[in-house]
Computed example of a mutant assay.
Amino acid sequence: MQRRNTINERISLIYFESKQRYGSPRITLELQSLGYKISRITVAKYMKQLGLRSKLSKKFKVITNSNHNYLIVENVLNREFVVKTPSKVWVSDITYSAS
């Protein structure tokens, strides 16, 4: 029981250090590199009992096309966002959805 508690603590530690991205295969490799003799199946079972699931990250996809002939407005604000009078500077942002 002590060994299982220790392994569960290690699994949780590795899981959160990896920003919740590691699944049972990587956590198993980490544990084995620390000297624990444990299978991936056992790690997966412990992770399920602990309610730990790896977060899948999507590959970064470039959606901005910089090769265009549209008008490019001069940067007059020059990142000086603090203004002295109201309605002196207005800014906006466009968020694209990659569908």
Rank of each mutant, 00 (worst) to 15 (best):
Y22E: 02
L56T: 04
K61N: 12
V43F: 00
P86E: 02
K84I: 06
S18Q: 02
Y70K: 15
K48V: 08
R40G: 04
P25C: 08
E80T: 14
R26F: 03
L77H: 14
N65E: 15
Q49H: 07
P25K: 02
V62W: 13
K61Q: 11
N65Q: 14
R10F: 05
Q49I: 03
N69M: 10
G35R: 11
A98E: 08
R53I: 05
L29E: 08
E74I: 11
K58M: 09
V76F: 15
G35A: 09
R26Y: 04
K58C: 05
L31A: 05
E30H: 03
H68F: 08
R3I: 13
S18R: 01
R40P: 00
L13K: 13
S24R: 00
A44F: 07
E17Q: 06
Y22V: 05
T28C: 05
E30Q: 06
N69G: 13
I7D: 07
F60K: 15
Y96H: 13
F16P: 02
P25Q: 05
V73W: 12
E80Y: 13
L71M: 07
K45R: 06
I38N: 03
V89I: 07
V82D: 11
G35M: 09
V43S: 00
V62H: 14
V43M: 02
V73G: 15
S66Y: 09
S66A: 08
L77F: 15
E9N: 12
K37E: 14
L29K: 04
N8R: 07
N5D: 10
S39Y: 13
S33F: 07
D93K: 14
K45Y: 04
K55N: 03
R21Q: 05
W90V: 07
K48Y: 06
K59A: 05
P25N: 09
Q32L: 06
V76H: 13
A98T: 07
I11W: 00
T64M: 14
K61W: 15
S18E: 01
Y15D: 01
S33E: 10
V73F: 15
S39N: 15
V83K: 04
E9C: 04
E9A: 06
L50K: 09
L13C: 11
Q2R: 10
L34C: 14
L71P: 03
T6N: 11
R4K: 14
E17N: 08
I63T: 13
S87C: 13
L56W: 09
M47F: 01
Y96F: 15
G35I: 07
G51Q: 02
I38R: 03
I38H: 04
Y46N: 04
N8V: 01
S24L: 03
Q49P: 03
R3P: 01
I94Y: 10
N67V: 13
G23K: 01
G23R: 01
V91N: 03
S12W: 02
R4F: 08
L29R: 04
V73I: 15
Y36E: 10
K55G: 01
Y36I: 08
F60W: 12
L13N: 12
E74P: 05
I11M: 02
E74G: 06
A98M: 12
Q20R: 10
E9D: 10
L34S: 14
P86R: 10
V82R: 09
